[in-house]
Simulated assay, not measured.
Amino acid sequence: MNVVVQHRVDGDGRSQVSLAELIALRGRVGRVRMAPLVSRAARSGQQSSRLYGRGMDYAESRVYQAGDDVRRLDWRLTARSGKLHTKLFQEDREGCLLILLDTHASMRFGTRVRFKSVQAARAAAAAAWYAVRAGERVGMMAFGHADHLLRPQGGPRGALALCGALAEWDASPPPSDKHEPLSDALTRASRVLHGASRVLLISDGFSCDTSARQRLLDLTRHAGVSVLVVADALELALAPAGRYPLEHAGERSEVLLQSERQRREFQRALGAGPARLGELARSLGLRCSSIDTTADPFDAATGLFGHVRPAR
């Protein structure tokens, strides 16, 4: 996919994604020591395991299972044991990170510093630069308002393409009322993994539905899954008493919050999405982190793949 962003004015980094800012994150990655990355998760948690593929170094043989490639049968062991056995091989291909980016209208919201959509783009870019420095390919799938797919590419070119796509997708027409349940997005992602060994879901959780749990669980059978919850400050904590101007679809309104009860109900409604997604991720034992729109997303995004150690 060719990403063309040269003819648009760069975003301000607050309500619109700044391509220059995303590219500059490459310098941050260059100053950290890389830790081993978790490449695949077992169903019971985020434990790394061996991956197998054809044309690689032989690893072991096991009893034949339905669906195994008959071309990989271990005929010598089969003859000795009297039972069909299949050869398994150590995978020797580079890893691949697929980022699932939430682009629902709820992401175009922010009361502190920047929109959630901008923060999500910054986190995605940080993760991409970190991954390519570790020798992985990076790809991205948007869900919600946009349903674009950026196929995985390796090296700095892959990260640059991802940064360009983030800026281009963000500059597309304002979100409509289109809604894609998270379960549908995860089902779509399972069809376009393209050999991805890791998946990073970046979302505010408002698309999280009851079926998403099983879809996430299914996805962990194929790749290591991490979740980054992006939220606004008002979604995470009680707002101070006062009047709050809000704008949606070009219409302005004002919310008056005086009593503690009003403020708690307001925070509970605004924070329902992030709370729901965070709880779901933790209940499945997935690597999960949360950030608000004022935070530096670098450590949160890269920390989901291993401990980042400052260079000496």
Rank of each mutant, 00 (worst) to 15 (best):
S117A: 15
T111R: 12
P156L: 05
A165Y: 06
S176A: 11
G154C: 07
L149T: 07
Q119D: 07
T103G: 09
S117L: 04
A125E: 03
Q153R: 09
W129K: 03
R157V: 14
L162E: 01
D147C: 12
A126S: 15
A159G: 00
G158E: 01
F143W: 10
A161M: 04
A128I: 06
G144M: 09
G158W: 00
G164I: 08
G158S: 00
A167V: 10
C163M: 03
W169H: 11
R122V: 05
P173E: 03
S117T: 08
A125P: 04
L166S: 09
A127Y: 05
G135Q: 03
D147R: 15
S117D: 07
D170T: 07
L162Y: 00
G110C: 11
L162S: 02
P175A: 15
F143V: 07
A159M: 01
G164D: 09
A131N: 02
A123M: 04
S106P: 06
P152G: 02
W169K: 08
P173C: 14
F115D: 06
A161S: 03
G139V: 12
L160H: 00
P175V: 11
W169Y: 13
L160G: 00
R114F: 02
Q153L: 15
P156E: 05
F109C: 14
A134W: 04
R122W: 04
H148T: 15
R151W: 12
W129G: 09
V132E: 04
F143Y: 14
A171Y: 12
R133L: 11
L166R: 11
F115M: 05
R122F: 06
Y130C: 11
S172F: 13
A125L: 08
F143L: 07
L101E: 09
P175C: 12
F109K: 08
A131S: 09
G144A: 14
A159F: 00
M140Q: 03
G139R: 03
A165R: 08
R114N: 06
L149C: 07
G135T: 10
A134K: 10
M141K: 08
P174D: 15
A131V: 02
G158A: 01
R133P: 09
Q153C: 11
K116D: 10
M140Y: 02
K116H: 05
A121V: 06
G158K: 00
A123D: 03
F143E: 08
S176D: 09
E136V: 08
G110T: 10
A171T: 12
T103N: 06
A165M: 14
G110H: 07
Q119V: 04
G110V: 07
A105N: 14
M107S: 13
S176V: 04
L162K: 02
D102L: 00
G155K: 02
W169R: 14
G144L: 10
W129A: 07
M141E: 05
E168H: 13
K116C: 07
K116S: 07
V138H: 01
A146D: 15
P156H: 01
S117V: 03
A127S: 14
L166C: 13
M107R: 11
S117M: 07
W169S: 11
L162Q: 01
V138F: 06
H148P: 05
